[in-house]
């Protein structure tokens, strides 16, 4: 099924309208609007300072935008402006129906808790109380992200960067969230390690039908994962469309520059 077909048949999962955020006199992001559908992967590209990280922080509820609205299709109440949610409601959403994958795995996993414990935390936080089942689920997820089960009880600080990042993904996806935010998920990893991570991610996203918003400056990442693409410059979205269209036929000079500056994959 193509992204366009998905769009036509499903209701909106995340509806973003006119989101702006500035810091003092500096623009973070300006008047950003888009709609995300279930199972859709949206890439946001731009160089550092283009406002993509600010936008992601606003979307994930970590930063309050100055203006605009962000509505999410919650399981219980349908479309709800996430800015109107109380802190506990937002935190609950963030640990059940959402996932957040940080660039640095240290920000997203507990380094002093075993890999199994890291994966088990979300299920336990929503009431799982059967050790055997929690552990079986941890094993299942370690398999999915291609981490050797012999490492189940090891602490992530003994893991390589790529393994840590895959563990972070497993820890987030175990509750089968419907939306995952990813901030430069391949940042700081070797190219060979990146390839494996992207492979795992692509498999999971398609298998589980998870919607994702991926912020990155790496066009290879979006080409592989994203159905749709937004290009940001100086806080604004300057170009958007289906990923292949944007990358193969960029209209804006900035996008053209961005595309020509990387080797084609």
């Amino acid at each position: 099924m193509t992204a366009a077909a998905k769009v036509a048949t499903r209701r909106i999962l995340l509806d973003v309208r006119g989101v702006s955020k500035s810091y003092g006199g500096q623009v973070g992001c300006l008047d950003v609007s888009f709609a995300l559908y279930p199972g859709e992967v949206l890439g946001i590209v731009g160089e550092s300072g283009s406002g993509k990280s600010t936008l992601l922080a606003c979307l994930a509820g970590r930063l309050a935008p100055d203006t605009g609205s962000i509505a999410y299709d919650t399981k219980e109440r349908g479309l709800v402006d996430i800015l109107s949610l109380s802190e506990p409601e937002r935190r609950r959403l963030a640990r059940t129906d959402w996932g957040i994958v940080h660039q640095n795995p240290r920000d997203g996993i507990r380094m002093d808790v075993s890999a199994g414990g890291n994966i088990g935390e979300r299920p336990m936080s929503i009431g799982a109380r059967h050790y055997g089942k929690i552990r079986a689920e941890a094993h299942e997820w370690l398999n999915k992200v291609e981490i050797d089960l012999a490492r189940t009880d090891d602490k992530p600080r003994t893991f390589s960067g790529g393994m840590q990042q895959r563990l972070q993904i497993a820890r987030n996806l175990v509750t089968r969230p419907r939306l995952v935010f990813m901030d430069e998920p391949t940042g700081g990893l070797d190219v060979s390690v990146q390839a494996k991570l992207l492979d795992v991610l692509r498999g999971l996203v398609h298998e589980l039908g998870i919607a994702a918003i991926i912020v990155t400056h790496d066009l290879a990442v979006v080409r592989l994962l994203a159905d749709r693409l937004m290009v940001m410059q100086r806080g604004r979205v300057i170009e958007e469309g289906l990923t292949d269209q944007v990358l193969d036929d960029p209209h804006q000079p900035y996008t053209q520059l961005l595309v020509s500056s990387v080797l084609q994959v």
Partner: peptide, 22 residues
């Protein structure tokens, strides 16, 4: 205090999980 206020006790259960695993 936030963890209590929002009854977010998952991390506490994780410490018990770690014991059993070990």
């Amino acid at each position: 205090r936030k963890l209590h206020a929002y009854a977010e006790y998952g991390a506490m259960q994780v410490t018990l999980y770690e014991d059993v695993a070990r």
